[in-house]
């Protein structure tokens, strides 16, 4: 895609097209990748609520958490931090478990490593 010249762009860096952040694929920024542990999920939507990049995929009709939009997820891990199932697991088995522990609902796996 040819980039626009200065005469063609809106001034002030203003973006006039609503929601075009979707065109900007930020998935490549990730150091850690969220992995969905569907079996543990209680579909509370806390991750969806807190995700700063709208990268939680949900089935709204059936009120189900479906996974992650990895083309945009930057791997910040907020979803894993706010997940109440994760909190419960850590309470039960200990705070020191690794962030990719398979018992977690949302686990963070180093990018490039196998799940």
């Amino acid at each position: 895609m040819a980039l626009k010249g200065w005469k063609e762009l809106p001034i002030g860096g203003v973006i006039l097209e609503a929601g075009n952040a979707a065109e900007y694929r930020t998935g490549g920024w990730r150091a850690f990748r969220p992995v969905f542990g569907e079996a543990a999920c209680i579909h509370c939507f806390q991750c969806w609520l807190f995700c700063p990049d709208s990268s939680i995929l949900v089935d709204a009709e059936n009120e189900k958490m479906m996974g992650f939009d990895l083309e945009h997820c930057k791997g910040c891990g907020i979803c894993a931090s706010v997940c109440p199932v994760n909190a419960k697991v850590r309470r039960q088995v200990g705070d020191k478990i690794p962030r990719d522990d398979p018992r977690l609902c949302i686990r963070m796996v180093e990018e490039g490593k196998a799940e």
């Binding site: 980039l3 626009k4 010249g5 200065w6 762009l9 001034i11 002030g12 860096g13």
Partner: peptide
């Protein structure tokens, strides 16, 4: 990719 164009404006 765009900052420079906004400065030119």
């Amino acid at each position: 990719d765009y900052y420079y164009e906004h400065k030119r404006q």
